[in-house]
């Protein structure tokens, strides 16, 4: 059986490792990107079932990357969860405006993240 593919765009290796280990016991397949441009390239190349997008990334911000993916027909319908840091109020609104399907604020509970993933793309 081939599980659903999830792309996590995040530059912090510990957070990547955490989500990798969180999903290791599930049927989801995790692919990773560590900056905005790489995230866009990977998403367009692999067309994942779900994208987790950190808001603050090197090279290209999470919001700009989201906008680019929304503009491309290949990824226009892929659910994108933007992970915000509530630095300034209005981040939620900015994420929605950029085309995010949902947002999650840091620090998030791995339990809640898994629940959100399951709601958006149910496991087979």
């Amino acid at each position: 059986m081939s599980g659903k593919t999830i792309l996590y765009v995040e530059d912090n290796e510990y957070n990547l490792k955490m989500v990798r280990q969180l999903l290791a016991h599930t049927s989801y397949r995790l692919i990773e990107a560590t900056d905005g441009e790489m995230g866009v390239a990977t998403a367009l190349g692999e067309t994942p079932d779900l994208i987790l997008m950190d808001i603050q990334l090197p090279k290209l911000s999470g919001l700009d990357a989201t906008r680019r993916l929304r503009a491309d027909p290949k990824t226009a319908d892929v659910p994108i969860v933007v992970i915000t840091s509530f630095a300034l109020s209005g981040d939620d609104q900015k994420a929605k405006d950029a085309g995010a399907s949902a947002y999650l604020s840091k620090p998030y509970s791995p339990r809640e993240l898994l629940q959100m993933i399951r709601n958006l793309v149910p496991e087979n």
Binding site: Q56, A87, L88, Y108
Partner: peptide, 26 residues
């Protein structure tokens, strides 16, 4: 402030996340 907020939350995310996963028996 925006940077600092994100920079502080990113490691906190890993710390709290890993502890939760350990306690959840993952």
């Amino acid at each position: 402030l925006a940077n600092m907020s994100h920079e502080l939350r990113t490691p906190m995310n890993a710390i709290l996340g890993f502890v939760e996963m350990v306690l959840d028996g993952i």
